[in-house]
């Protein structure tokens, strides 16, 4: 027994060692102000108490509909927004409490790829300047070695040396996204937040970028936090998927587990809504009544209760705890769908 325990301790420690990012009770409330003196009239709880871990080398997908707080979560992790409460541990440092100077250092390890490759690249800079800028800002390279480094990065993402002196407008959407990826890789980050990184791209281009992201992850051992509303792409690239609703994580599990056995009624309906590109699998969708409530005035108790077919008085009154109710399967629901067949995939 004692030996077993020691082994268990060792195993749990091994897992613990692999955690690269740990989010604890993270909150971000935005003040809504009114009038000249900016009197605070209400608070939008964009992120309202998140807890999750990200393991080194994995892709954690975060999905949810407009206003669920997924993009705010990404910006908090990047230190682009100050947290109202809570912690974000990158290895052992808490990003949430860092000064601007410390943040600058941490950002070398935490990079971002944005949705819109049109607005996120400076139109007056050449590709060489755009990709090289992070290296110059951090004083890591100059002159010939800078040029060489930029060329290497361009090759890594499938661009050619002959394109060094070109401007963003000379590239297609997919190529611009490659430029954005090269810039994100310049500082050899450990974690990359992909915020709707393929959402604006045409389907044939989306496949190229998803394949590139996977290839880079294999070659460079990157960790991705892949934030998107497009569920098929998230399912394709992620190892685990977390579902957010009105600022809270309602469920988090392995990418197959969550589609085959969603436990939260919202997850179940959300995943069931995805149209399957095969007419043989036409079906009636589980429809959720109503719309997502205003995050400045979220419902009491479980935020999902007004739209939930299983809600009771308990759900109106008490906020459900977010717990690991099956191995590696977290859910925040008073009545998880444990004894139901909730598989949303066609068989």
């Amino acid at each position: 027994m004692l030996i077993m325990n020691e082994k268990e301790v060792a195993e749990s420690k091994a897992v613990e060692d692999k955690v690269i990012l740990k989010v604890q009770n993270l909150k971000k409330h935005f003040d809504m102000t009114k009038g000249l003196i900016k009197k605070t009239t209400s608070k939008v709880r964009a992120v309202d108490g998140l807890n999750f871990q990200v393991y080194e080398g994995e892709t954690l997908g975060i999905v949810g509909e407009s206003g669920c707080g997924k993009s705010t979560t990404g910006q908090l992790i990047l230190g682009l927004l100050d947290a109202t409460e809570g912690h974000i541990y990158f290895r052992d440092q808490d990003i949430a409490g860092m000064s601007q100077q410390e943040l600058r250092k941490a950002r070398r390890d935490l990079q971002v790829i944005f949705q819109d490759p049109y607005s996120s690249l400076n139109p007056r800079m050449t590709v060489e300047e755009i990709i090289g800028e992070p290296l110059v800002v951090h004083g890591l390279a100059k002159g010939k070695s800078l040029r060489q480094e930029v060329v290497n990065l361009m090759k890594l993402v499938g661009l050619g040396e002959h394109q060094l002196k070109r401007y963003p407008h000379e590239f297609s959407g997919g190529q611009r996204q490659r430029i954005g990826i090269a810039r994100a890789l310049a500082l050899k980050p450990k974690v990359i937040v992909c915020d709707e990184a393929v959402s604006a791209l045409d389907v044939s281009i989306q496949a190229q970028i998803l394949n590139l992201l996977k290839k880079l992850q294999r070659e460079l051992g990157l960790t991705y936090i892949f934030i998107a509303h497009g569920l098929p792409a998230v399912r394709h690239i992620s190892n685990r998927i977390g579902v957010m609703y009105l600022g809270r994580m309602v469920e988090l599990a392995g990418r197959d587990e969550i589609f085959e056995r969603p436990l939260h009624p919202y997850t179940h309906a959300l995943l069931d809504s995805v149209p399957i590109p095969d007419p043989r699998f036409r079906k009636e969708h589980l429809l959720i009544e109503g719309e997502i409530p205003n995050p400045s005035n979220p419902p009491s108790g479980c935020h999902f209760h007004p739209r939930c077919p299983y809600a009771t008085d308990l759900c109106k009154q008490k906020d459900p705890a977010y717990e690991e109710i099956l191995p590696n399967h977290f859910v925040a629901c008073h009545y998880p769908l444990l004894n139901k067949n909730t598989n949303v995939l066609p068989s």
Binding site: S172, G174, Q175, D202, V203, S204, I205, Q206, A207, Q208, L210, N211, K214, L231, P232, A233, R235, H236, I237, R255, D256, F259, L271, V274, I276, P277, D278, F281, V344, L345, P346
Partner: peptide, 19 residues
């Protein structure tokens, strides 16, 4: 080239080049 929730592959087929 489209990712499918019911049929996950390692790498997607991709149409080279652009429109």
């Amino acid at each position: 080239s489209i990712p499918k929730v019911h049929d996950v592959v390692d790498d997607l087929y991709s149409i080279e080049g652009t429109v």
